[in-house]
Amino acid sequence: MPTTPDPALTAENYSATAAAVSAEMTRTDSKATALLTLDGLLVAGIGLLGTGAPWWSVALGAIGGVALTASVVMALIVLRPRLNTPATNGSFLHFAAADPSAVAAHMTQDYRADRIAAQSRLTLAKMVHLQRSGDLALIAVVAVAAALLSR
């Protein structure tokens, strides 16, 4: 037998889910910042190769440099705001385009599910880019370390 949803439980679930999705997005941005820091250290590692390194060290350094560049690009994509996406009801993009009467009318509706779904899709896209950035940074670490050890 179907049960009637408890409004208090529904509100609590919406709040908890919205908070969890926001926390995941914040974690993604923090991880992207950490990856950019690692990428900066890798630039210093490539700089340690200096001149007069054997060709294989230079080749490994170049591989590391390409992977490093791609990692930085992916991390910056994670951090870059998504302003060209369609405005979801209740998002700041939605309100930025609305007049005061539309904002007031919006306050009488419940758009939490729309916001949670949109923010979840955005967080997933950021996580995919973050994963790619991390994979590329790992390749760069291995290549730069090999280049430094082989000089």
Rank of each mutant, 00 (worst) to 15 (best):
P2F: 15
T3F: 12
T4N: 01
P7A: 10
P7W: 10
A8T: 08
L9I: 11
L9Q: 13
T10I: 15
A18K: 11
A19N: 11
A20S: 12
V21A: 01
V21G: 03
V21L: 12
S22G: 09
A23G: 06
A23Y: 08
E24K: 13
M25F: 11
R27A: 15
A34I: 10
L35A: 14
L35M: 12
L35V: 15
T37V: 14
T37Y: 10
D39W: 07
D39C: 15
V43M: 09
G45V: 01
G45L: 00
G45Y: 00
L48I: 07
L49F: 10
G50Q: 03
T51G: 13
G52T: 14
W56E: 08
G61Q: 03
A62L: 10
I63W: 07
I63C: 13
G64D: 04
G65C: 01
G65K: 03
V66A: 13
V66L: 15
A67Y: 04
A67V: 15
T69A: 14
A70Q: 12
S71D: 01
V72L: 00
V72A: 09
V72M: 02
V73I: 15
M74Y: 09
L76T: 01
I77W: 04
V78T: 04
V78F: 02
R82P: 00
G90Q: 05
G90S: 05
L93A: 01
A97C: 04
A98T: 00
D99R: 11
D99P: 01
P100S: 09
A102G: 04
A102V: 08
V103K: 10
V103T: 11
A104R: 10
A104D: 01
A104I: 12
M107P: 00
M107S: 07
T108G: 03
Q109S: 11
Y111M: 05
Y111K: 02
R115V: 07
R115N: 01
I116A: 05
I116Y: 02
I116D: 02
A118Q: 01
S120D: 15
T123N: 03
L124D: 02
K126S: 00
K126C: 00
V128C: 06
V128H: 11
H129Y: 12
L130Y: 01
Q131G: 12
R132S: 04
R132Y: 14
R132E: 03
R132A: 10
R132L: 14
S133Y: 08
G134T: 09
L136A: 02
L136C: 04
A140N: 06
A140K: 02
V141Q: 03
A143C: 14
V144C: 00
A145H: 04
A146V: 12
R151Q: 05
R151H: 10
